[in-house]
Amino acid sequence: MKRALICGVSGQDGSYLARLLISKGYEVFGSSRDAQMESFNNLQTLGIKGEVNLLSIATTDFRSVLQALSQVAPDEIYNLAGQSSVAMSFEQPLQTMESVGISTLNILEAIRFTGASTKFYNAGSGECFGAAAAQPCDENTPFRPRSPYAVAKAAAFWSVANYREAYGLNACTGILFNHESPLRPERFVTRKIIATAARIASGSGEKLHLGNLAISRDWGWAPEYVEAMWMMMQLDNAQDLVIATGRTCTLEEFVSAAFASVGLSWRDHVVTDESLFRPTDLNESRANPARAHQLLGWRAKNTMPEVVQRMMEAELGRSGAIHH
Rank of each mutant, 00 (worst) to 15 (best):
M312H: 02
T173K: 00
N41W: 01
R286P: 00
W219F: 15
A133K: 03
N140F: 06
V271L: 14
V28N: 09
N237R: 11
L213W: 06
L108N: 01
Y149M: 00
W158K: 05
V65S: 00
P182N: 05
E51W: 08
T59H: 13
F129R: 02
V65T: 04
M311Y: 09
G101C: 12
G203N: 09
C128Q: 15
L55W: 12
E127S: 14
G50C: 08
I175N: 03
E38Q: 09
L94C: 06
E306A: 10
V189L: 15
C128P: 05
T96S: 01
A18H: 11
K153F: 02
G30E: 15
H293F: 15
Y121F: 15
A314Y: 04
E91L: 12
P74M: 04
W158N: 14
D240N: 11
S70R: 14
G317A: 12
F254Y: 12
A201E: 08
A154V: 09
W158Q: 10
D240Q: 03
F157P: 03
Y16M: 03
G130C: 01
A152I: 05
R144C: 08
V271N: 07
S159D: 11
D61R: 05
P305M: 00
C172M: 14
F29L: 05
S275N: 10
A300L: 01
H179W: 06
T250E: 01
S31K: 03
N122Q: 15
S181I: 10
R144L: 06
R184P: 13
S32R: 00
T114H: 07
M233H: 05
R144Q: 07
A152T: 08
P279E: 02
A238W: 04
S23A: 12
E224H: 05
L235T: 06
H179D: 15
L43F: 09
H269N: 10
Q71A: 09
G297M: 06
E27I: 15
L94Q: 12
A314F: 04
A81G: 11
P145D: 03
I57E: 09
L295D: 07
S89I: 01
S31P: 05
E139Y: 01
I243Q: 00
H293N: 11
I200A: 04
M97L: 13
L20V: 12
D34T: 04
F277R: 11
N212W: 07
A314C: 06
R310W: 07
N41F: 00
F113E: 11
I200M: 08
G30T: 10
E98D: 13
I322S: 11
L235D: 03
E165V: 07
Y121S: 06
T245H: 00
N302K: 11
Y78F: 15
W219D: 10
E139I: 06
A171L: 03
S181Y: 10
K49P: 06
T248S: 02
A68C: 03
L108M: 01
